[in-house]
Amino acid sequence: MKMKLASYVLVLFTILSCNSSAQTKKLSLEPKKGKAIAVFAEGCFWCSEHIFEAVVGVDEAVSGYTGGTTKNPSYEQVSSHRTGHAEAVAVYYDPKIISFKELVNVFFASHDPTTPNQQGPDYGSSYRSIAFYRNAEEKKIILDKIKELTVNKVFLDPIVTEVKPLSDFYEAEDYHQNYIKHNPNEPYVKGVSIPRYQKFKKTYKGKLKPNS
Rank of each mutant, 00 (worst) to 15 (best):
A88C: 04
G206K: 11
V106S: 00
T114P: 00
F13M: 11
V192H: 04
Y93M: 02
N152I: 03
K35M: 05
V151I: 09
C44N: 09
F155N: 09
N19Q: 06
D168R: 09
R128N: 14
P31T: 12
A41L: 06
T83H: 01
K181D: 12
L16G: 13
K145R: 15
F13Y: 13
I146F: 01
H50L: 07
L10E: 10
M3L: 11
H176N: 12
E138Y: 09
S129H: 03
D122F: 03
R82Y: 08
A90N: 09
I51C: 04
S20C: 05
E148R: 10
K35A: 05
K205E: 14
K207I: 14
R134N: 15
K153N: 12
R134L: 03
N152F: 10
A131R: 04
T24H: 01
N178R: 15
I194R: 09
V151K: 12
V106G: 04
G57V: 08
P121I: 02
K199P: 05
K153C: 06
A90P: 13
F100M: 05
F155H: 09
L5H: 13
G206F: 06
L208P: 13
D94G: 11
I159W: 01
E162Y: 12
P73L: 00
V151Q: 08
G191T: 13
H85G: 05
E53N: 14
S110E: 10
Q118G: 07
R82Q: 15
W46Y: 10
K101W: 04
I159L: 02
K26M: 14
D168K: 08
K26I: 14
E148L: 06
Y65I: 03
D59G: 08
V11F: 07
Y8N: 08
E30Q: 13
P95G: 04
P31N: 10
V163K: 02
D174W: 06
G64M: 00
Y133W: 12
V56G: 02
V62T: 14
G124S: 03
P113Y: 02
G120R: 02
A54S: 15
E186L: 01
E186M: 05
Y92K: 09
L12D: 13
V56I: 04
G68V: 14
I37C: 03
V78N: 02
T115K: 01
A61Q: 12
S110H: 06
V62F: 00
